[in-house]
C-alpha cells in the first residue's frame, strides 16, 4: 500500500478526504474508488487534503479528475487543499489547476463552498 485514505464528513453533503503517501499508479484505483464511494454516500462536495502526499503522478491526477467528475455529476465539486511544490508543479504544467482548484489550507477550501 502506498497511500492511506481518511474520510471526515464535515457538514451536509461535504467531506474532507485526507490522503497520506504517494498518489501514483499503485494507489490511483483505490483513491478513485474511494472518492466515488464518498460521493455516492451523499457527500458530493469534496475537499481532498494533499498535505501528507509526497508525490503525485499522472495516474494520481487521473484519480482526482475521476473524483471531480463524479462530484460534479452529483451536483458538487472537488477542491484541492495543501498541495506541496511537486503537486502544484504538475497541476500547473498540466493546466489542471483550472478545474482542480488548489487552496492553501483545508479551511479555505471548505469555506469556498
Amino acid at each position: 500500500m502506498t497511500i492511506a485514505i481518511h474520510v471526515e464528513p464535515l457538514g451536509p453533503r461535504l467531506a474532507v478526504v485526507k490522503l497520506s503517501g504517494r498518489l501514483d499508479l499503485l494507489s490511483a484505483v483505490e483513491v478513485k474508488q474511494r472518492l466515488a464511494a464518498v460521493v455516492n454516500e451523499g457527500s458530493p462536495r469534496l475537499v481532498v487534503d494533499l498535505g501528507e502526499v509526497s508525490f503525485i503522478d499522472s495516474s494520481g491526477l487521473g484519480a482526482l479528475i475521476s473524483g471531480l467528475k463524479a462530484a460534479r455529476l452529483a451536483g458538487g465539486d472537488l477542491r484541492i487543499a495543501r498541495p506541496d511544490k511537486q503537486a502544484r508543479h504538475i497541476l500547473q504544467v498540466s493546466t489542471l489547476d483550472r478545474v482542480l482548484v488548489p487552496y492553501a489550507t483545508v479551511e479555505e477550501a471548505v469555506a469556498a463552498y
Binding site: D57, S58, G62, A63, I65, K69, I90, S94, T95
Partner: peptide, 20 residues
C-alpha cells in the same frame, strides 16, 4: 480541458514528463 463533462483521466503522462 474545455469540455468539463469529458475531462480526460489519463494519457498525459508523457506530456507531464516533458514539461518537468
Amino acid at each position: 480541458l474545455d469540455d468539463l463533462t469529458d475531462l480526460p483521466e489519463g494519457g498525459f503522462g508523457l506530456f507531464l514528463a516533458r514539461q518537468s
